[in-house]
Design a protein around this nucleic acid. Structure first.
Lengths: 144, 144
DNA sequence: CCCTCATCTTGACCGAGTCCAGAAAACTGA
DNA sequence: TCAGTTTTCTGGACTCGGTCAAGATGAGGG
C-alpha cells in the first residue's frame, strides 16, 4: 500500500503519531480538496468504519498546525481544507453554488503582497479570493 | 441635527424607510468601522435605549443588501461591517488581536482581478486580505 | 514488555446567526 | 388628518458549526 506509506511518512515527518483517524483524514483531504468537515468525516468513516466527529476536528487542527493541510473559510461557507500547501495559491469561489477552484498566483510568489499603505503592520500573507459565477451556474441562470 | 439628516437622506436614497433602529445602526457603523454585531448592538442601544438583537441583524442585512454597508468576515472572526462602500479597497488583519485596517488597492480599481487561470468562472470581485501583525502586537511580542 | 503521554470517544455545551408569528410602526392616498 | 397597507420590530425557540471536559485507549520510547 504505497499511498498509505506515503501518508504515514508525511505524518511522521511532521512529528505526529500515526493513528487510524489521522491517516484516514489526511487521505480524505488529499482525495477531496476543498471539502468541508462533514464530507471529510464521511470520507474518513468510509475508510475506517467509525471515527468521532471530535477526533476529525482534532486531527484537522493538528494537521493544519503542522502545516500538512490548509484551512480556508470563504465568507458564508463552512471551513474547508486542502492538502496543497507551501505554494501561495488562491481561490475562486462561485457565489451561487459555493464551488471552489485553485488559482495560481498571477503576479509572482508574493502576489499583491505589497499593500499601498500597510499602517505599520508586518504583513506575512496576502490571501486573495476571487468571487464570481462558475460555468455550470452561469449556464443555469442563462437558461432560466 | 445635520448628521442625522444625512443618515436619513442616505436611507431614503436607498429606498429604505427611515426608522429609529436603522438610523441608530447606520450611525453606529459609521462611528465604528469594522465593528462586529455585538458592538453595533451596544452602540445602537446607547443611541436608542432598547433595540432587539434581531432588529439589528435585520437592519444590517437590509443595509448590506441596499449597498449602504459592506459585510466582511475574516477567517476566525465574527462578521464585521463597514460603511465605506463603492471603492474597491481591501483589509489588513492582525493575526494576534484581530484589528482591521483599510488598505487602498495597490494596483488600480481592478486590483488583481485577472486571475491567471479562471477555470471558466465569470469573476466579478477580487477580495484581498493581508494577514500580519499590527504595530501594537508586534511591540508586545517583541518586548516579551 | 511496560510506562507514559498524546490521542480518541462520548456527550454536554457555547455562541453566532436564523426562523417564526404576532404586534407595532411608517409610508400612501384621499 | 385619517384609514389602509405594507414593512419592520419584538421575543423566543431553534439550528448548526465548532469547542470543552473527563475518562478510556493505544502509540512508541526505553
Amino acid at each position: 500500500m504505497t499511498e498509505r506509506g506515503r501518508i504515514e511518512a508525511e505524518l511522521r515527518a511532521a512529528r505526529l503519531r500515526v493513528t487510524g483517524p489521522r491517516v484516514a483524514v489526511l487521505r480524505a483531504v488529499h482525495a477531496h480538496p476543498h471539502a468541508g468537515t462533514d464530507a471529510l468525516i464521511d470520507a474518513a468513516r468510509a475508510d475506517l468504519g467509525e471515527v468521532s466527529k471530535q477526533a476529525v476536528y482534532d486531527v484537522l487542527r493538528a494537521l493544519a498546525d503542522a502545516g500538512l493541510v490548509r484551512r480556508i473559510e470563504p465568507s458564508g461557507s463552512v471551513a474547508r481544507y486542502e492538502s496543497r500547501v507551501g505554494d501561495n495559491h488562491h481561490h475562486v469561489v462561485c457565489r451561487t453554488c459555493g464551488a471552489i477552484e485553485d488559482v495560481d498566483c498571477a503576479v509572482s510568489h508574493t502576489p499583491c503582497l505589497t499593500a499601498s499603505e500597510d499602517h505599520g503592520y508586518r504583513i506575512d500573507e496576502a490571501e486573495v479570493v476571487y468571487w464570481g459565477t462558475c460555468p455550470a451556474c452561469a449556464a443555469d441562470s442563462g437558461a432560466a
